Measured scan of single mutants.
Amino acid sequence: NKEKKVFISLVGSRGLGCSISSGPIQKPGIFISHVKPGSLSAEVGLEIGDQIVEVNGVDFSNLDHKEAVNVLKSSRSLTISIVAAAGRE
């Protein structure tokens, strides 16, 4: 599966507009579980089932849900590497 990078700058009070969840035991990782229509996440093409592999240089493969949320909230400017639809297989 091809990795792609998206860049998101949080402007004003707009949030990311997506929710994440941890994958099942047999498929660990952090996946996008919800994308709000019209949100920044939707605008850059994030979709439900995409796996987040890295954010701002932080490897997401071994993070738990709480740590992942903290990384996503730690910066107003995010570089997110995803594997599209990895969670839909």
Rank of each mutant, 00 (worst) to 15 (best):
R88V: 13
K27M: 09
L46D: 02
S39V: 01
N70S: 15
H34Q: 09
R14I: 06
Q51S: 02
V83T: 07
G17L: 02
K36A: 12
S39H: 00
G23P: 04
I82M: 08
S22M: 14
R76D: 14
G17Y: 03
S81A: 08
N62Y: 11
S21T: 14
A85S: 12
L46Q: 01
I32Q: 00
S39G: 08
G17N: 03
S41M: 05
L78A: 05
K66G: 13
S21N: 10
K2N: 08
K5V: 08
K27G: 05
V55W: 00
G38T: 04
K5W: 04
A42F: 06
F7K: 13
I30F: 08
I25V: 13
Q51C: 05
S41C: 09
G17E: 04
I52E: 04
R76Y: 07
P24S: 14
A85C: 10
S19K: 12
I25P: 13
K5A: 05
K36I: 12
G29I: 02
K4A: 03
D50C: 02
K27V: 05
S75F: 15
S19L: 08
V35H: 00
G45M: 02
T79A: 13
N70T: 05
N70Y: 15
S41W: 02
F31W: 09
I32G: 01
F60I: 06
L16C: 03
R88G: 12
Q51R: 12
E89Y: 08
G49L: 01
K36V: 14
V55A: 08
A85P: 13
L78W: 05
L72F: 02
K4G: 04
E43R: 09
F31V: 05
A86K: 13
L78R: 03
F60Q: 02
R14C: 07
K36R: 13
C18Q: 02
F31Y: 13
S13Y: 06
A85I: 07
K27T: 12
G15D: 13
E54Y: 05
G23R: 06
E3G: 11
C18T: 04
A86W: 07
Q51E: 08
S41A: 15
N62S: 12
P24M: 09
V44L: 08
T79E: 15
I32R: 02
N56S: 07
S21M: 12
I80E: 05
L72S: 15
L40T: 09
R14S: 10
S81Y: 06
Q51H: 06
L46W: 01
V44H: 15
I52T: 02
I80R: 03
I48P: 14
I8F: 07
K27S: 10
G29R: 00
I20W: 02
F31D: 02
V55G: 01
G57V: 14
S19N: 10
I25N: 14
A42I: 01
G45N: 05
F31Q: 04
K5C: 06
S33L: 02
R76K: 14
S21P: 01
N62W: 07
F7M: 14
S21D: 09
L46R: 00
K4L: 04
S19C: 11
D59Q: 08
I25M: 12
L40W: 08
